[in-house]
Simulated assay, not measured.
Amino acid sequence: MFKKNKIAAVLGSAALVSTVILSGCGEKEVELKTNSDKVSYGIGYNVGSGMRQEGLEEMNVAAIAMGLQDALADKERRLSMEELTAAFNEVRAIQDDKMKALNDENLRLGQEFLKKNGEREGVTVLESGLQYEVLKSGEEGAAQPEVSDMVTTHYHGTLVDGTVFDSSVDRGQPATFPVGGVIKGWIEALQMMKVGDKWKLYVPANLAYGTQSPSPKIPANSALIFEVELLSIKGKES
Protein backbone atom coordinates (compact mmCIF):
# COMPACT_ATOMS: atom_id res chain seq x y z
CA MET A 1 0.00 0.00 0.00
CA PHE A 2 2.99 2.27 0.10
CA LYS A 3 4.61 3.99 -2.83
CA LYS A 4 8.04 2.57 -3.54
CA ASN A 5 11.06 4.51 -4.70
CA LYS A 6 11.62 2.62 -7.94
CA ILE A 7 15.30 3.46 -8.29
CA ALA A 8 16.01 2.60 -4.67
CA ALA A 9 14.23 -0.72 -5.12
CA VAL A 10 16.48 -1.56 -8.03
CA LEU A 11 19.57 -0.57 -6.08
CA GLY A 12 18.50 -2.72 -3.17
CA SER A 13 17.94 -5.69 -5.47
CA ALA A 14 21.23 -5.42 -7.36
CA ALA A 15 23.30 -7.24 -4.76
CA LEU A 16 20.83 -10.11 -4.64
CA VAL A 17 20.81 -10.64 -8.38
CA SER A 18 24.61 -10.57 -8.72
CA THR A 19 25.08 -14.33 -8.58
CA VAL A 20 22.58 -14.92 -11.35
CA ILE A 21 23.93 -12.24 -13.69
CA LEU A 22 27.57 -13.09 -13.17
CA SER A 23 27.08 -16.81 -13.56
CA GLY A 24 25.36 -16.18 -16.88
CA CYS A 25 27.98 -13.82 -18.32
CA GLY A 26 29.45 -15.24 -21.50
CA GLU A 27 27.09 -18.23 -21.42
CA LYS A 28 24.00 -18.84 -23.50
CA GLU A 29 22.41 -21.10 -20.92
CA VAL A 30 23.06 -21.61 -17.22
CA GLU A 31 22.44 -25.09 -15.86
CA LEU A 32 20.17 -25.11 -12.83
CA LYS A 33 21.22 -28.27 -11.01
CA THR A 34 22.03 -27.45 -7.40
CA ASN A 35 19.75 -25.81 -4.84
CA SER A 36 22.05 -22.80 -4.96
CA ASP A 37 21.56 -22.59 -8.73
CA LYS A 38 17.78 -22.79 -8.36
CA VAL A 39 17.58 -20.24 -5.55
CA SER A 40 19.85 -17.90 -7.52
CA TYR A 41 17.58 -18.21 -10.54
CA GLY A 42 14.51 -17.57 -8.38
CA ILE A 43 16.06 -14.43 -6.92
CA GLY A 44 16.99 -13.19 -10.38
CA TYR A 45 13.54 -13.92 -11.77
CA ASN A 46 11.81 -12.13 -8.89
CA VAL A 47 14.05 -9.08 -9.23
CA GLY A 48 13.50 -9.00 -12.99
CA SER A 49 9.73 -9.26 -12.51
CA GLY A 50 9.84 -6.38 -10.04
CA MET A 51 11.82 -4.23 -12.46
CA ARG A 52 9.35 -5.00 -15.25
CA GLN A 53 6.38 -4.13 -13.06
CA GLU A 54 8.03 -0.83 -12.18
CA GLY A 55 8.57 -0.01 -15.87
CA LEU A 56 12.33 -0.61 -15.71
CA GLU A 57 12.49 -3.48 -18.18
CA GLU A 58 14.67 -1.41 -20.52
CA MET A 59 17.62 -1.44 -18.11
CA ASN A 60 20.87 -2.70 -19.68
CA VAL A 61 21.55 -6.15 -18.17
CA ALA A 62 25.11 -6.21 -19.54
CA ALA A 63 25.84 -2.88 -17.83
CA ILE A 64 24.37 -4.19 -14.58
CA ALA A 65 26.67 -7.21 -14.83
CA MET A 66 29.66 -4.93 -15.50
CA GLY A 67 28.91 -2.85 -12.43
CA LEU A 68 28.56 -5.97 -10.27
CA GLN A 69 31.80 -7.44 -11.56
CA ASP A 70 33.71 -4.21 -10.94
CA ALA A 71 32.31 -3.87 -7.43
CA LEU A 72 33.05 -7.49 -6.46
CA ALA A 73 36.56 -7.16 -7.89
CA ASP A 74 37.00 -3.92 -5.94
CA LYS A 75 37.75 -1.97 -9.12
CA GLU A 76 37.39 1.77 -9.44
CA ARG A 77 34.02 3.01 -10.67
CA ARG A 78 33.88 3.75 -14.39
CA LEU A 79 31.55 6.73 -13.76
CA SER A 80 31.81 9.55 -11.25
CA MET A 81 29.18 9.99 -8.52
CA GLU A 82 28.06 13.16 -10.30
CA GLU A 83 27.42 11.22 -13.52
CA LEU A 84 25.59 8.45 -11.67
CA THR A 85 23.44 10.88 -9.68
CA ALA A 86 22.47 12.79 -12.82
CA ALA A 87 21.56 9.55 -14.63
CA PHE A 88 19.50 8.23 -11.72
CA ASN A 89 17.68 11.54 -11.33
CA GLU A 90 16.79 11.61 -15.02
CA VAL A 91 15.42 8.05 -14.98
CA ARG A 92 13.50 8.80 -11.78
CA ALA A 93 11.95 11.92 -13.34
CA ILE A 94 10.89 9.96 -16.44
CA GLN A 95 9.31 7.23 -14.30
CA ASP A 96 7.51 9.79 -12.14
CA ASP A 97 6.11 11.53 -15.23
CA LYS A 98 4.88 8.21 -16.64
CA MET A 99 3.25 7.27 -13.33
CA LYS A 100 1.55 10.65 -12.95
CA ALA A 101 0.12 10.43 -16.47
CA LEU A 102 -1.13 6.90 -15.79
CA ASN A 103 -2.65 7.87 -12.44
CA ASP A 104 -4.44 10.85 -13.99
CA GLU A 105 -5.86 8.63 -16.74
CA ASN A 106 -7.02 6.03 -14.21
CA LEU A 107 -8.77 8.77 -12.22
CA ARG A 108 -10.49 10.13 -15.33
CA LEU A 109 -11.68 6.70 -16.44
CA GLY A 110 -13.00 5.93 -12.96
CA GLN A 111 -14.88 9.21 -12.72
CA GLU A 112 -16.44 8.72 -16.16
CA PHE A 113 -17.54 5.19 -15.23
CA LEU A 114 -19.07 6.27 -11.92
CA LYS A 115 -20.93 9.18 -13.52
CA LYS A 116 -22.67 6.88 -16.00
CA ASN A 117 -23.12 4.07 -13.49
CA GLY A 118 -24.79 6.39 -10.96
CA GLU A 119 -27.53 7.12 -13.48
CA ARG A 120 -28.55 3.47 -13.79
CA GLU A 121 -31.81 2.31 -12.23
CA GLY A 122 -31.23 0.45 -8.97
CA VAL A 123 -27.94 2.18 -8.17
CA THR A 124 -27.89 4.33 -5.03
CA VAL A 125 -25.36 7.17 -4.87
CA LEU A 126 -24.36 8.26 -1.36
CA GLU A 127 -23.14 11.70 -0.34
CA SER A 128 -19.59 10.37 -0.01
CA GLY A 129 -19.62 9.31 -3.66
CA LEU A 130 -19.94 5.61 -2.86
CA GLN A 131 -22.44 3.78 -5.08
CA TYR A 132 -24.20 0.49 -4.41
CA GLU A 133 -26.97 -1.74 -5.65
CA VAL A 134 -28.69 -4.49 -3.69
CA LEU A 135 -28.30 -7.93 -5.26
CA LYS A 136 -29.84 -9.92 -2.40
CA SER A 137 -31.40 -8.97 0.95
CA GLY A 138 -30.99 -10.81 4.22
CA GLU A 139 -33.80 -11.45 6.66
CA GLU A 140 -35.63 -8.48 8.13
CA GLY A 141 -34.11 -7.55 11.48
CA ALA A 142 -30.83 -9.38 10.88
CA ALA A 143 -27.80 -8.00 12.70
CA GLN A 144 -25.81 -5.08 11.30
CA PRO A 145 -22.09 -4.59 11.99
CA GLU A 146 -20.51 -1.66 13.78
CA VAL A 147 -17.08 -0.27 12.99
CA SER A 148 -15.56 -2.19 15.92
CA ASP A 149 -16.96 -5.59 14.81
CA MET A 150 -15.28 -8.50 13.07
CA VAL A 151 -17.16 -9.70 10.00
CA THR A 152 -16.95 -12.60 7.60
CA THR A 153 -17.72 -11.93 3.94
CA HIS A 154 -17.46 -13.34 0.49
CA TYR A 155 -16.35 -10.80 -2.09
CA HIS A 156 -15.31 -10.47 -5.72
CA GLY A 157 -13.25 -7.41 -6.68
CA THR A 158 -12.69 -6.02 -10.17
CA LEU A 159 -11.44 -2.90 -11.89
CA VAL A 160 -13.94 -0.89 -13.94
CA ASP A 161 -12.80 -2.76 -17.07
CA GLY A 162 -13.76 -6.09 -15.48
CA THR A 163 -10.25 -7.25 -14.58
CA VAL A 164 -10.38 -9.37 -11.40
CA PHE A 165 -7.78 -8.33 -8.81
CA ASP A 166 -8.99 -10.26 -5.75
CA SER A 167 -11.78 -12.70 -4.99
CA SER A 168 -12.58 -14.80 -1.95
CA VAL A 169 -15.26 -16.40 -4.13
CA ASP A 170 -12.65 -17.65 -6.60
CA ARG A 171 -10.51 -18.91 -3.71
CA GLY A 172 -13.51 -20.66 -2.18
CA GLN A 173 -12.64 -19.23 1.25
CA PRO A 174 -14.58 -16.41 2.98
CA ALA A 175 -12.55 -13.57 4.49
CA THR A 176 -12.76 -12.42 8.11
CA PHE A 177 -11.55 -8.95 9.09
CA PRO A 178 -12.35 -5.93 11.29
CA VAL A 179 -14.84 -3.49 9.76
CA GLY A 180 -12.55 -0.60 10.68
CA GLY A 181 -9.55 -2.21 9.00
CA VAL A 182 -10.62 -1.99 5.37
CA ILE A 183 -10.95 0.77 2.74
CA LYS A 184 -13.31 3.67 3.45
CA GLY A 185 -15.88 2.54 0.90
CA TRP A 186 -16.21 -0.83 2.62
CA ILE A 187 -16.37 0.69 6.11
CA GLU A 188 -19.29 2.87 5.04
CA ALA A 189 -21.14 0.11 3.19
CA LEU A 190 -20.70 -2.66 5.76
CA GLN A 191 -22.31 -0.59 8.52
CA MET A 192 -25.38 -0.17 6.30
CA MET A 193 -25.66 -3.87 5.44
CA LYS A 194 -27.23 -6.65 7.46
CA VAL A 195 -26.25 -10.31 7.63
CA GLY A 196 -27.41 -12.08 4.48
CA ASP A 197 -27.21 -8.97 2.30
CA LYS A 198 -25.29 -9.09 -0.94
CA TRP A 199 -24.44 -5.70 -2.45
CA LYS A 200 -22.47 -4.53 -5.42
CA LEU A 201 -20.23 -1.62 -4.42
CA TYR A 202 -18.82 0.96 -6.81
CA VAL A 203 -15.99 2.63 -4.92
CA PRO A 204 -14.39 5.92 -6.07
CA ALA A 205 -10.60 6.07 -5.89
CA ASN A 206 -10.63 8.40 -2.87
CA LEU A 207 -12.67 5.81 -0.92
CA ALA A 208 -10.41 2.95 -2.09
CA TYR A 209 -6.60 3.24 -2.24
CA GLY A 210 -6.31 6.71 -3.79
CA THR A 211 -2.90 7.57 -5.16
CA GLN A 212 -1.34 4.54 -3.48
CA SER A 213 -1.39 1.03 -4.93
CA PRO A 214 -1.64 -2.02 -2.67
CA SER A 215 -0.49 -4.33 -5.47
CA PRO A 216 0.46 -4.30 -9.16
CA LYS A 217 -3.04 -5.59 -9.89
CA ILE A 218 -4.62 -2.34 -8.69
CA PRO A 219 -3.24 0.77 -10.42
CA ALA A 220 -3.16 3.95 -8.37
CA ASN A 221 -6.26 6.19 -8.56
CA SER A 222 -8.47 3.28 -9.61
CA ALA A 223 -12.20 3.12 -8.96
CA LEU A 224 -13.04 -0.40 -7.76
CA ILE A 225 -16.07 -2.67 -7.99
CA PHE A 226 -16.91 -5.29 -5.37
CA GLU A 227 -19.67 -7.81 -4.96
CA VAL A 228 -19.87 -8.23 -1.18
CA GLU A 229 -21.96 -10.75 0.73
CA LEU A 230 -22.09 -10.28 4.50
CA LEU A 231 -22.07 -13.79 5.95
CA SER A 232 -21.74 -13.18 9.69
CA ILE A 233 -20.70 -10.83 12.47
CA LYS A 234 -18.53 -12.25 15.24
CA GLY A 235 -20.48 -12.32 18.49
CA LYS A 236 -23.77 -11.64 16.72
CA GLU A 237 -24.21 -15.01 14.98
CA SER A 238 -27.73 -15.44 16.33
Rank of each mutant, 00 (worst) to 15 (best):
K4W: 01
A8Y: 03
S13N: 11
A14I: 06
S18Q: 10
I21P: 00
L22H: 11
S23T: 12
G26H: 04
E27T: 14
K28A: 02
V30G: 05
E31I: 13
K33H: 03
T34C: 08
N35T: 05
S36E: 04
K38V: 12
V39D: 06
S40Q: 03
Y41V: 06
Y41R: 09
S49R: 12
E54D: 13
E54W: 12
E57K: 13
E58R: 15
M59W: 13
N60R: 14
A62G: 10
A65H: 09
L72I: 14
A73H: 09
D74S: 13
K75F: 06
E76M: 08
E76G: 08
R77D: 12
L79Y: 15
M81L: 07
E82P: 05
E82M: 01
F88V: 14
I94E: 06
K100R: 15
L102P: 07
D104I: 05
E105D: 09
L109G: 03
Q111C: 12
K116H: 04
N117R: 15
N117C: 14
E119L: 15
E119S: 09
V125C: 06
L126T: 07
S128E: 08
L130S: 00
E133M: 15
V134L: 05
V134N: 00
S137F: 00
G138A: 05
E139T: 03
E140A: 12
A142W: 00
P145G: 03
V151A: 09
V151G: 12
T152D: 08
T152A: 11
H154M: 14
Y155S: 03
H156D: 01
H156T: 02
T158E: 09
T158C: 01
L159W: 00
F165G: 03
S167N: 02
R171D: 00
G172M: 08
G172F: 07
P174W: 09
F177G: 00
F177V: 00
F177K: 00
V179I: 07
G180L: 11
I183P: 02
E188I: 11
E188K: 06
Q191F: 03
K194R: 09
K200T: 02
K200Y: 01
L201G: 03
L201D: 00
Y202F: 13
V203P: 01
V203W: 00
P204N: 06
P204H: 02
N206D: 08
L207W: 01
G210Y: 11
T211F: 09
Q212F: 10
Q212W: 08
Q212C: 04
S215E: 02
P216Q: 08
S222H: 01
V228R: 03
E229L: 11
S232M: 10
E237S: 15
